[in-house]
Computed example of a mutant assay.
Amino acid sequence: MTEAPITDPKTLRALSHPFRWKLLQLLTEEGPRTATQCSEVLGESVASCSYHLNMLAKYGFVTEVEGPGRQKPWKIVPKRQSISSEGLEGETAMAAEAAAMAYLDQEFERTRTRLRQREHLPQEWREAVGTEGTVKFITAQEAVEYLAELRALLDKYDERRLDPALRPEGSRPVRLFLSHTVAPD
């Protein structure tokens, strides 16, 4: 999947709402869900879930699953996109920053929550939960190459995310989050 940077300010603003990131994560990890099912898991009203799912659909992040019945489940539109204010100006740059901060806030909250729950996991899963931190003294070019290698590792089981039939018995969603920053000069 190629990475398409989001440059439309309205699309970026759609991602600046923290609850929308929770919906995206729920649909990514648990598959298609109706607004009612999202409400039950996330503790938000059905009307709110429906509204936010419709906003995500408007900008191409989710779509309704075709099928019988009045209540249609929503599913993730499988594509990889990036959010960055790099090369953007004014309102669009501010919208990109707001979307990125909403994503990070939600990501850090999910990480904190799951780290607190670690002791309740079966023993075989406890080693898979934690945080890592390191500092490397490398050049800009080495950093780009290093990140490409890490991204290749992160992509290793992507087909299982998109096709539940490929998931081995006993598999669970394991969230991997890669952050990379450079110290100021």
Rank of each mutant, 00 (worst) to 15 (best):
E3M: 13
P5S: 13
I6H: 00
D8G: 05
H17E: 13
H17Y: 11
P18F: 10
P18L: 10
F19C: 01
R20W: 09
K22E: 15
Q25H: 12
L26S: 15
T34M: 09
A35I: 00
T36D: 15
Q37G: 15
Q37E: 15
C38V: 06
S39M: 03
S39P: 11
V41G: 05
E44C: 04
S45T: 10
A47Y: 09
S50A: 10
Y51W: 00
L53D: 02
M55V: 09
M55W: 00
M55D: 07
L56H: 01
K58L: 12
Y59P: 13
Y59H: 15
F61Y: 15
V62D: 01
V65I: 08
G67A: 08
G67E: 11
G69V: 04
G69P: 03
Q71W: 04
K72M: 09
W74D: 02
I76Q: 12
P78E: 04
P78W: 03
R80D: 08
Q81K: 09
S85V: 02
E86M: 10
G90P: 12
T92N: 01
A93I: 00
M94C: 08
A95V: 07
E97M: 06
D105C: 05
Q106E: 15
E107W: 02
R112C: 09
T113M: 05
Q117P: 00
Q117V: 00
E119V: 11
Q123P: 05
R126P: 04
R126H: 01
R126V: 00
E127K: 08
E127G: 13
E127Q: 10
T131M: 11
E132M: 14
T134Q: 13
T134D: 14
V135A: 15
V135I: 12
K136Q: 13
F137S: 06
F137H: 07
I138K: 09
V144A: 08
Y146H: 10
Y146T: 06
L147D: 07
L147V: 05
A148L: 08
E149C: 06
K156S: 14
K156V: 14
D158M: 10
E159V: 02
R160F: 02
R160D: 09
L162D: 14
P164K: 00
A165N: 07
L166Q: 14
E169R: 11
S171K: 03
S171P: 01
S171R: 02
P173S: 13
P173Q: 14
R175K: 07
S179Y: 00
S179P: 06
H180C: 13
P184H: 03
